[in-house]
Nucleic acid binder design. Structure first.
Lengths: 201, 201
DNA sequence: CTCTCGTATCTAGCGCTGCTAGCGAGGAGA
DNA sequence: TCTCCTCGCTAGCAGCGCTAGATACGAGAG
């Protein structure tokens, strides 16, 4: 094997890897767009394959199954959510106002992008969560919450646990409202009640 | 048509209606048991039909579809939950203790009977919720929450909204913990944090 | 007692789903 | 130039929710 041969093989390989990565991006994007447009029920492996103009089995050479594709979409969603939360946090001034702004942004995200939100926090289980192996984007999103919860922690409170509790409350409001279990009506006032109780009136 | 004929026909009809109601009970029970034992994915119309020893289409003469069967199971679940919450509430003494007891019971119910809980509060949409048409058992369960939340409402607070907010927080804790998004570990302490913040320290 | 009719139930099948085995083309390397 | 290996394809499996059409059975009339 000559050195030129080795080099050529490597460049060909890298091109192929690049194309492959590009196609993977295509799959995840198509899945996200289809889910956001028509819901996850509409995201079938056949439609997804048609969308990316490849045959069905190609999907399985990239992902273990539909669940893994949803997981990839969910990770993208975490990055989006983290970005929105960061923007809301840095734009707000004051402890209470920051908490309220982040809370509003969180539930607004869940309402505006329900398919994405469901992939992240309702469906899917095969994504590591409360461990170091969890995707960085997920930790980033959680940290945005932590940063606004931290100032309201009382002496001796575990900030992580308090953040988790606050997160759970937001998650509950988001999911129950979106599924029609809570009327859309009082949403703002419920958020206000939550923030008031967590900031200690 | 003689009067005896009319009477006979009525008794036959009532017997048939009784048998039909009995079979409906059988379906709902089988669905609940199968779901609790193996999860809702295992509850297929075929398995359900086999379980009750009738053919598939019989299910559709009782319910509009699988969703309607899940709804029926969910209503049963509401009654169970309401009973547990009532027991916890009446057994507890003191404002804070009642709230804590009901909160513990609620999340414990979700953990012990996940399939039932999901049918009630995660899956399903074709069950009326925040309206007068909602099943009485559902209102009953909600009222058990309301009764322990009422004492902690501040002047001018809408008790209903406050209850909804507290409920959402419990729901968030229950679902996130059960799906592995929150570690089982800090659950007790998260509950405590929630109760403390809602009772105003 | 017999015949007819309506109802209740079953068999069979439709159009999907996620997923996979196995074939064939086409490029890499000797 | 020949061989081999990788890649994507066609075709198909088992199972899903749901339904159309056939059938058996029991009630009521003559």
């Amino acid at each position: 094997m000559t050195s030129t041969a080795r080099i050529r093989r490597m460049t060909i390989q890298t091109r192929r890897e690049r194309e492959r990565a590009e196609r993977e991006r295509l799959i995840v994007n198509a899945a996200r767009e289809l889910a956001e447009a028509e819901g996850w029920d509409a995201v079938t492996t056949r439609r997804l394959a048609a969308e990316i103009e490849y045959s069905q089995p190609v999907l399985y050479s990239h992902f273990k199954g539909k669940g893994a594709i949803m997981a990839a979409v969910a990770v993208q969603g975490c990055a989006d959510l983290a970005a929105e939360l960061r923007a809301a946090r840095t734009a707000a001034r004051g402890t209470r106002e920051s908490l309220a702004a982040v809370a509003r942004t969180y539930t607004s995200f869940a309402r505006r992008r329900p398919a994405l939100y469901d992939a992240m926090f309702t469906h899917l289980v095969d994504l590591p969560f409360a461990t170091p192996e969890a995707p960085p984007a997920l930790w980033d999103a959680f940290d945005q919450l932590r940063l606004v919860v931290e100032p309201i922690a009382a002496e001796g409170d575990d900030t992580g646990l308090l953040t988790e509790t606050f997160w759970a409350a937001l998650h509950g409001l988001a999911t129950l409202t979106r599924s029609g279990r809570l009327p859309e009506d009082g949403h703002e006032r419920r958020l206000d009640l939550l923030v008031r109780h967590f900031t200690g009136e």
